[in-house]
């Protein structure tokens, strides 16, 4: 079995790896945006609660949270499908990190522009939607890329809950062929290529929506 054949064998799992990465990244963006927006708009007690949320979910290992959700919750009568378990663990943890990224990016929005929007008569929610979020998202691109990369790198945990991603394919292949070194080397290359694709893709998107003079 040549190295190329190994690579081809493994590509069967690429779709699942990308699906897990995208699903968890989107979960992260939704959770992160929600948390960052609420703590920008909300009362101080609410920001304290949200601060605790981000601290806890940044302190618990992905693997532990995944096991809590997938293997633990059935004890409490709650059975969660594998992909949802990944979203509730890896995705929510990514959300906690992204909330911090977004918070920092919100702080980069010029306060005088917010004041001008108020003086114009826009509501607080309109200011958030029309001024702050469009700018914030652009400031947050580097941080988002970091976080999406992290999600991709933790996505192989999906094999522990039975999702047939690249890692799972590699494990079954190495069990039958005993060529682990080549197989895992191929796996590394596949992940690296997905990583490059992801980074290039996000920057291309950023470039298309770039505004002169906003993000240096």
């Amino acid at each position: 079995m040549s190295f190329l054949q190994i690579l081809l064998q493994l590509t069967g799992g690429v779709g699942y790896t990308i699906m897990v990465t995208v699903a968890c990244s989107l979960t992260g963006v939704v959770v992160g945006l929600g948390v960052a927006m609420l703590s920008r708009l909300g009362a101080s007690w609410l920001s304290a609660v949200l601060g605790a949320f981000t601290f806890i979910f940044r302190a618990v290992p992905v693997l532990v949270l995944l096991f809590i959700v997938f293997f633990g919750l059935p004890n409490a009568g709650l059975r969660v499908p594998p992909l949802v378990a990944m979203m509730l663990s890896l995705g929510v943890i990514a959300g906690a990190y992204l909330a911090e990224v977004f918070r920092g990016a919100f702080d980069s929005v010029d306060a005088s522009e917010v004041l001008a929007a108020e003086a114009m008569g826009l509501s607080r929610f309109q200011i958030l939607r029309l001024i702050e979020i469009p700018q914030m998202l652009r400031f947050a691109v580097p941080g988002m890329i970091n976080e999406f990369t992290t999600v991709l790198k933790y996505s192989p945990f999906a094999y522990t809950v039975g999702i047939p991603d690249v890692m799972k394919e590699a494990m079954s292949l190495s069990a039958t062929t005993l060529r682990g070194v080549e197989i895992y080397l191929a796996v590394g290359i596949i992940y690296f290529l997905i990583y490059k694709l992801l980074v290039t893709g996000v920057w291309a998107l950023e470039k298309r929506t770039r505004i002169p003079g906003l993000t240096g």
């Binding site: 005088s112 522009e113 001008a116 929007a117 003086a119 700018q135 652009r138 003079g213 906003l214």
Partner: peptide, 10 residues
Amino acid sequence: VFQNFALYRH
């Protein structure tokens, strides 16, 4: 009309 103009940069 603000001192630093406060145009929306985006």
